[in-house]
Amino acid sequence: MSRISETFHQLKKNEKTCLISYITAGDPSLDDSLKIMNTLVNSGTDIIELGVPFSDPMADGPTIQRACERALIHKTSCSDIFNLVKKFRINNKGTPIVLMGYLNPIERMGYDLFAKSASESGVDAVLVVDLPHEEAEDVVNIFKKYNLESIFLIAPNTKTERIKKIANYASGFLYYVSLKGVTGASTLDINSTKEQLKIIKNTIELPLAVGFGIKDAETAKILSNQADAIVIGSAIVNIIENEQGDNIKTNSDIMQLMNPIRLKLDENIISGEEV
């Protein structure tokens, strides 16, 4: 069983919701990223999404665009990110790592070399934001060859027929974009998202993650009834930006953000155990 499947399997057994956290690799430095990854795990993160910085992140909001810019000041490359993952894996063999980024840096490195190096460093899956399934067949096959899972997005305007097609290419989990907009937007409509999630859950078998616009424990909790995983991204990246390289403060602020989310997600279970 893959690390991601194993993670979802265990969480399901314990009736827990998966918490996925996003940071951009190399923001503000690779050393900082390693510390933050460990902090995320210590504050309840089950899967880490590591952003591969790109100069033109057109599906991301200003927060993650600026994170990319900070990471690119010192030219964070795919190879740098593989080294980061290798270092992380020395002490952590269990937490799945998903790389999330845009196609061009991967294409430039070469798909085969990228997939081979990613897999060897301990990466579990790749989400290429600007690669819809129609363009993805060759890439997915190369990823598969190196045991990398392919995560795909589903949007609020994705029709059911298309969701089924996407699911054919996807492995690991599917990622539902909870709003029409970019990452970090503030217009998440909880009720319509809940409805959509119900429909999608009936269509697919893979675990379903939901992200874009989730900033607090309350929203995370409400959506967790319909989804297997909750993704927190821009809220974490905002902290990294605000603390401007102050290591201790960054990590303590991230703890303060993530601990309540983890607690809230686990609330029912704790009370359930008490009964």
Binding site: M58, V129, P132, E134, E135, F152, L153, V177, K180
Partner: peptide
Amino acid sequence: NGHYGVFGGTFVAETLIE
């Protein structure tokens, strides 16, 4: 599919597909 040989295509996030 909007391809010009190996060029062109539709490389966008899912929300723009529809």
